Amino acid sequence: MKKRIFFLLCALLLGMVLLENLYTWIFLKADPTLAQAKIEWARFENPYKRKTSLSWQKAAIHLHTDRIWFTPGRNSPEEIETVYAANGYKILGFTDYERITLPEKLSSIKGYEWGMNLKKRHLTVLGTEEVTNDLFPIYASVENMQWMINKIGSQGGFIVINHPLLNDSFPLKILSELKNYNALEVFSPFGDIPKQWDKLLSNKVPSFCMASDDLHYLPREEYIRIKTSGLPNWRDLSSEIYKQEGESLMRYVLINTDSLEESEVLKSLREGNYLCVRKMERTLQDPKLGPIGMKGEEEIFFEFQDTPLTVEFIGQNSEVLLHTAYSKRGSYKIRPSDSYVRIQAIFPTAVVLSNPFFPKK
């Protein structure tokens, strides 16, 4: 009898979820083709136009903590902050599932990860005071996702499409149709997608890059290094049992900003005034960089402190427009036929991506 009641309650709950998702699928829609007309092309012309007081401040975005009830074995905000601060990070963005969590010591950006659905269509949302819940747990069409992006955008959120390759959650066709998101997770532990990003840019679907650890667990050796003594907790047990090999200290962004205040950091993110970095291995040194920008209205340049193995200026459909090797300085003059140009630098320790420059229209 008790089993029957249990299964009836489960069936009732599932039925309610299905009915709710049916309602949201039918009524909560937005046409992505209408969003196309809203693109402000001028803000993509030169992401590095604004000169700032601070340059290349190291930031980690998309970090999960133990503050959600169903993730008790993950690291605490204090543990994550300790490890990242020791490795030169100045800004953190915790993105727990539909919950805002803030670090205590480092500068922070309020954020959360939207998405509690079967397809694992997740978005990083930064800079909002409130959390928007996932109304499409079973299924969402492109029109449903556009509606949600528009809603979060109307609240002032900086929106990143997370890990497109995970569960094939955002195939290229869907990414090509969606509009009004700010950035795309080009560097992710679930797969790097610079060529897919190029295809979107080539099809006039502009976005900035994002590089994220998508941290779920600190690697065991890093956790042991900073753990405090005391009674064993969930994290101690899971670390011993599963020998977790979490992703940390591998993917980050370097932001030009006037201060480490949230409003200033968000301003720079919206401008694309930052770089995306993926290290070859977490223990390697960070590459030492310098200014990237434009001379006049046509010449894109870079100046680095460390010597890169190669620097490439990349354009339409991933075409290499100019290739340099072992050069700390270089430039490329935009041609009339170039639809966009981005810089890709490979160092012995890391790969660095600039955001795209779009010629004036």
Rank of each mutant, 00 (worst) to 15 (best):
E245V: 09
N87F: 05
L135Q: 13
S107V: 10
D286P: 05
E104S: 15
V160P: 01
I26G: 11
N182W: 04
H216D: 11
G330H: 03
Q305C: 09
D286T: 04
I241H: 04
F7I: 06
R67N: 04
L118Y: 07
I174D: 15
E143K: 14
E20V: 06
T324Q: 07
N355Q: 03
S169F: 10
Y274E: 02
V160L: 06
N203S: 14
K110P: 07
W147G: 12
G153D: 15
T33D: 15
T283D: 13
A140V: 01
Y89I: 06
Y252I: 13
L92H: 09
E247T: 12
V351Y: 03
F6Y: 11
Y326D: 14
T349A: 01
Q155T: 05
L172R: 04
S76Q: 09
D198Y: 04
I193M: 05
N150I: 08
N117A: 13
L63F: 00
P137N: 08
S141P: 02
C209E: 04
D258V: 04
Y242R: 02
K29Q: 06
Y252G: 13
P336D: 15
K3G: 11
W147K: 15
N46W: 01
P348V: 09
I343Y: 01
L289R: 00
I91R: 04
L126C: 02
E98D: 00
C276E: 01
K328C: 13
W25A: 15
L54T: 06
N133T: 10
E319D: 10
T82C: 13
G93S: 15
S108H: 12
Y326N: 15
T310Q: 05
F313C: 01
E299N: 13
W69F: 15
E222F: 09
L309V: 12
F187A: 07
